[in-house]
Nucleic acid binder design. Sequence first.
DNA 1: GGCAATTACATCGCATGCGATTAGATCGTA
DNA 2: TACGATCTAATCGCATGCGATGTAATTGCC
Lengths: 155, 155
Amino acid sequence: MSVNSLSPEEIAEQMTLDHMICFAAYSASQAMNRFYRPILDEMGLTYPQFIVMMVLWEEGQTTMKALSDRLILESNTLTPLVKKLEAAGLVTRARNRQDERLLDIAATEKGMALKRRGCMAPVELAAATGETLEGVIELQQRLANLRNKLNAKAG
Amino acid sequence: MSVNSLSPEEIAEQMTLDHMICFAAYSASQAMNRFYRPILDEMGLTYPQFIVMMVLWEEGQTTMKALSDRLILESNTLTPLVKKLEAAGLVTRARNRQDERLLDIAATEKGMALKRRGCMAPVELAAATGETLEGVIELQQRLANLRNKLNAKAG
DNA sequence: GGCAATTACATCGCATGCGATTAGATCGTA
DNA sequence: TACGATCTAATCGCATGCGATGTAATTGCC
């Protein structure tokens, strides 16, 4: 029987953990995080620190505000995280001269030096899944699309 | 040009945050968590507590070991979490009589009473994405498949 | 120009995740 | 049957996420 012929209540009645997209995303995200850990440990990065560096490897320089928008993380998460990157000598933090509310974040040479190794990690993950790169890309796009729709509702 | 014609190094060179399946899963998971929060707040649950309750709504009773396997979470995460559910009167914790190493977890009546509301949440999320239920189900299955392959590698 | 509203970042508190370690129960095997 | 290996929970420490709140800079509107 097609799920379309069921009411929301009937669907809810049959809902189990293994049918939930939220748990699939949650557990897949954690599985990928575990896959990365040995690689990121070598670089002295955690996963959230890694995605901050990804933005900086791409942009060279940014602001807390732009980081916050891009990573969909608030300052209460990013501030201590970026301070740790600064303490590790991977980024610099400085107030923007035009608008003192903004905090400029830039990768140091030491930070940029990690780019080559870091950018290989997602490629290795894709290979480890045994899927074609096209398949992974399609999955990535559909997930991003779903996320954007949810964030549009909330934001 | 097809990505198949590129070497891993060439792919890594072009890698950006928006092409990474890990960030798509990470940010989508967080977006779903945010979607659930108002609903779960009403029930006094956090998301990890919610998925523990999902297992109990399905099984009625389980053990820490089985919960750990099912949710792919270690005891260092589950122990304090389940203790909070116990303190809230939603579950009971007791040593297994046959094997004292195991801890039996069972939903109380109060815990089971939340099932109807809780099981609607994933249905509401699917509706909010604007996708067909079939589309969401397919996405869920592909994510779970990817996760399982990664976890199989890790052991 | 003056001042309330808005914006950007920071701080605090609580709840995960997880590596490392410990304690107690059970298993396997000589 | 003794006893080391294994298994299951629990504890500790550190790093996120995020709601609530605070503070300083900027904007907007009269």
